[in-house]
Design a binder for these strands. Structure first.
Length: 868
RNA sequence: GGGCGCUUAGCUCAGCGGUAGAGCGCUGCCCUUACAAGGCAGAUGUCACUGGUUCGAACCCAGUAGCGCCCA
């Protein structure tokens, strides 16, 4: 075994073997209880980033533990068809050939997109292999697969028949670049620099000034609105005013939606290009004038016709200025503007005929499932965020003017018939007969909302569906709570309602993690150039190091900052595990079973007691999705206790040979075995490699998850080793302060009391003290609670350093005495504090007083300063 | 504008009523035959501010300031 662990040499080979052995393949016929996770399907066009890596790491840790615990663990992988993104990718490819999708036609374009998907899509799934994800590849799914498409058509039909899907003309978010409608969730608002222009409409006493950031929409104004209680404009309500350039006279209406404190208190109303204005328009029966085409080019005849909206804006303002109608201009004016989440183009609110899901009844059920505890949101602090969204959900625009996606299964007949066609039904008529299918496709989220059951074969009553639904836990970032989690909740509860309230939920728990940020807690962004490619980390430090870095930072629902230094530290940890195991193997450690308790040394009983505690701790943390804490407990136990104290203490019996060595080999082998099992969910590769060598077992993937063996808990042993550690540390401190070389052995005379008396050899070994020889002369004396250590340094000692060390200890003891005394002299404390607390303070005082007198004795015994 | 959250060691974060913790970084010493991707030792905090509750507050309550996120 080389002294350094090289991940690249083992990871690929181990992974292929795991897959080949079928360890990750779940069996729907199994008698074991199921544990199911469906992966949040990444976009088929996407590549792995650290956020995915975190999500994958957590799901893998959960799944691997459950598998080891004896669950039939299914972790189902897949991707979504990402309507806009995929269509964009293929259109870009076509553009290079000088073609548009319209040149190909719908059918050929969809075929071409499938080809693109087969060739280039799903790269991310290969990337998660590199992370060691124990997903069931035999069940890989894609939202546009035949079975999943059937799920989509089925639920569409059911919702349609239940009047939960309808078609209506409304204001939608339109992306003039993607040329499709978007749902509210696909619009990102951020502050942009714009302008606020105040325009005077009308003349003389009847004139009214409106403020707007979108002067060009003036062409579509069909009213001016003021607040009904605004005295300034009361006399104008009911009159008409002329819209410049258009000659159109529009009413001045009173509407409570108007904010009298914004601008002049009067607003122009463009119902076809603003959601608020649309509502005002509905209330007042205003006309809806669409003034732009699908590419946001002005269509109103006149001087602005043919201008893009952003060209039209300054042109309109210039013309108004010329006309003397600009009263005020504020530039730049920073305000929130909606952008297409896919291409960042400014969204154009647009009046348009679209398909909608009536969400109120579905959302209510989705809220109730969390409120009554059928679904747990973890951590609970994020529940309000869920409710905030689910309780205020507006109807969901599900139609997209794309070609890549599930085509809406509605047919329109020659005589105005509208027929929704179910998955097993034939269209009501042919095109020749005058029938045509709706041109639009469904929002990708509509199909990913079905993911927890469409992937299991719904609507068919499959063995998978029976075995693995409801899924156990959904692991995702809190940023996705809104569009995706809520939608799965709505659809799951609706589609599975026959199963009854408890079993219709799509998952029992939603475990939310935070977003990954850079080492200073900043978001990753192109402009900062702070992006990190997780695969670079995998290559450089190994998949285990990458995973451990993410897992140990994963506090529920909290963002985690990370950087290469963190990953390097994780790599070092993996290497430490490697070397400690290497040491154990070189010394013949085996896991052939624990020796009888009578044969165990205190040191053995101590490490076994600690192992028991850590096993329980890690198990509890993992059960509660507290991965950062589980990792911290493992890191500390493995490195500081097992690989440091225990291994050092084990060297003596191992070197002594005989029965002592045998016992130690068995204990070391056992503790290492259990520790590797506990670490395996987080760092599967290095643990697997080492464990197979150590135990000769088949694979850790299918090994049993450790249970805490409370019969091994041993407080006395823990106390005894603690006393030993204190004594060792005391001598090491002295040596360090005296700048003694580590290899320099110092004669020492030990006077050990209590249980520490049994550990003279351990103390000598760890503190590097030789037995006193003839002519031993004490140069310095060290003391701890149970040990007096006299050292012979041939009279040479740095008295100043020793005085400084003791003085520091003296001050610490004095401070503690003062604090404890202050409490114990407080009658209110004695009267009201619980007895155990009082006893603890008394104990602390006694200990500190003993320390103090000991230190004072040592100080007094120090030679005069000049002596050297 | 509405809502949620955060402010603890140089950095990133735990702790959420009884002596301030971790990782990384930093300082000094050490290539001690498992490991320098290592070992030993060490330094570092008016726990944002102001009040209150309590025998006791980083922790509970109220207010203030700054920061972040979500929604409008």
């Amino acid at each position: 075994m080389p002294p350094q662990y090289t991940p690249a040499e083992v990871e690929g080979k181990l992974y292929e073997n795991w897959v080949a052995e079928g360890y990750f393949t779940a069996d729907a016929e199994s008698a074991k209880p199921a544990h199911t996770i469906v992966i949040p399907p990444p976009n088929v066009t996407s590549v792995l980033h650290l956020g995915h890596a975190l999500d994958v790491t957590i799901q893998d840790a959960i799944t691997r533990r459950k598998r080891m615990q004896g669950f039939e663990a299914l972790w189902l992988p897949g991707t979504d068809h990402a309507g806009i993104a995929t269509q964009n990718a293929v259109e870009k490819q076509l553009a290079k050939e000088g073609k548009s999708r319209h040149d190909l036609g719908r059918e050929a374009f969809v075929k071409r997109t499938w080809e693109w998907k087969e060739e280039k899509g799903g790269a991310i799934l290969n990337q998660i292999r590199k992370l060691g994800a124990s997903v069931d590849w035999t069940r890989e799914r894609f939202t546009f697969d035949e079975v999943l498409s059937r799920s989509v058509l089925t639920i569409f039909k059911r919702l349609y028949d239940d009047d939960l899907i309808y078609r209506a003309e409304r204001i939608i978010n339109w992306c003039p670049r993607c040329l499709t409608a978007l749902s509210d969730a696909e619009v990102e608002h951020h502050d942009d620099e714009g302008e606020l222009v105040s325009i005077r409409y009308g003349e003389g006493a009847d004139a009214i000034v409106v403020a707007t950031t979108r002067a060009e929409t003036m062409l579509g104004d069909t009213a001016v609105a003021v607040h009904p209680e605004d005295e300034r404009y009361a006399h104008l309500v009911g009159t008409e005013v002329e819209i410049p350039f258009t000659g159109r006279r529009v009413p001045i209406v009173a509407d409570a939606h108007v904010d009298p404190s914004f601008g002049t208190g009067a607003v122009k109303v463009t119902p076809a290009h603003d959601p608020n204005d649309f509502e005002i328009g509905q209330r007042h029966g205003l006309a809806n004038l669409v003034v732009m085409d699908e590419r946001a080019v002005i269509t109103v005849a006149g001087p602005f016709e043919g201008l893009d909206r952003f060209e039209a804006r300054p042109a309109v303002v210039a013309a108004l200025r010329e006309d003397g109608r600009i009263v005020a201009e504020k530039r730049p004016y920073v305000h929130a503007v909606g952008h297409c989440s896919r291409c960042d183009t400014v969204v154009e609110p647009r009046l348009s005929m679209q398909w909608w899901v009536k969400v109120a009844p579905l959302a209510e059920a989705a809220g109730a499932a969390v409120r009554d505890g059928r679904v747990n949101i973890h951590p609970k602090e994020l529940e309000p965020r869920y409710f905030q969204w689910v309780d205020n959900l507006r109807d969901w625009c599900i139609s997209r003017q794309l070609w890549w996606g599930h085509r809406i299964p509605v047919w329109y007949g020659p005589n105005g018939e509208v027929v929704c066609v179910g998955p097993d039904e034939v269209p009501p008529g042919t095109e020749a007969e005058g029938w045509r299918q709706d041109n639009d496709v469904l929002d990708t989220w509509f199909s990913s909302g079905l993911w927890p059951f469409s992937t299991l074969g719904w609507p068919d009553d499959t063995a998978d569906l029976r075995k693995f639904y409801p899924t156990s836990v959904l692991v995702t970032g809190y940023d996705i709570l809104f569009f995706w989690v809520v939608r799965m909740m709505m659809f799951g509860l609706y589609a599975m309602k026959d199963r009854g309230p408890a079993d219709s939920v799509p998952f029992h728990t939603v475990a939310l993690h935070g977003l990954v940020r850079d080492q200073f807690g900043r978001k990753f962004s192109k402009s900062l150039g702070n992006g990190i490619d997780p695969l670079e980390w995998v290559e450089k430090y190994g998949a285990d190091a990458t995973r451990f870095t993410l897992a140990r930072g994963a506090n529920p629902g909290v963002d985690l900052a990370t950087g290469e230094d963190w990953c390097q530290a994780s790599r070092n940890f993996c290497n430490k595990i490697w070397n400690a195991t290497r040491f154990a193997l070189m010394n013949g450690a085996t896991n052939t079973g624990l020796p009888a308790r009578e044969q165990l040394s205190t040191v053995d009983r101590w490490i076994l007691s600690r192992l028991t505690a850590v096993t329980a701790e890690v198990d509890a943390y993992m059960e509660d999705y507290q991965h950062a804490k589980a990792c911290a407990a493992l890191y500390h136990f493995a490195w500081d206790e097992l690989f440091d104290w225990y291994v050092e203490l084990a060297k003596a019996p191992l070197n002594a040979g005989g029965e002592a060595a045998q016992t130690t080999r068995a204990v070391l082998g056992h503790v290492l075995d259990v520790t590797l099992r506990l670490l395996h969910p987080y760092i599967p590769f290095v643990t697997e490699e080492l464990w197979k060598t150590l135990t000769g077992g088949e694979s850790l993937v299918i090994a049993e998850w450790p249970k805490a063996d409370v019969s091994l808990t041993d407080p006395a042993a823990e106390e005894e080793i603690l006393a030993l550690q204190q004594a060792v540390i005391e001598v090491r401190r002295f040596r360090s302060d005296q700048l003694l070389n580590k290899s320099q052995r110092v004669p020492g005379r030990l006077t050990l009391s209590g249980s520490l008396a049994a550990h003279e050899a351990d103390l000598r070994a760890l503190a590097r003290l030789t037995p006193p020889e003839e002519g031993f002369a004490t140069t310095a004396t060290l003391q701890t609670a149970l040990a007096v250590v006299e050292l012979d340094l041939s009279g040479t000692i740095d008295v100043a350093a020793e005085r400084a060390r003791l003085t520091k200890d003296q001050m610490a003891a004095a401070k503690e005495i003062a604090q404890a005394k202050a409490k114990l002299e407080n009658e209110a404390f004695l009267a009201k504090a619980p007895e155990p607390v009082v006893a603890k303070i008394r104990g602390r005082l006694a200990g500190a007083e003993a320390d103090l007198s000991r230190i004072q004795t040592q100080l007094a015994a120090l030679p005069a300063e000049s002596e050297a």
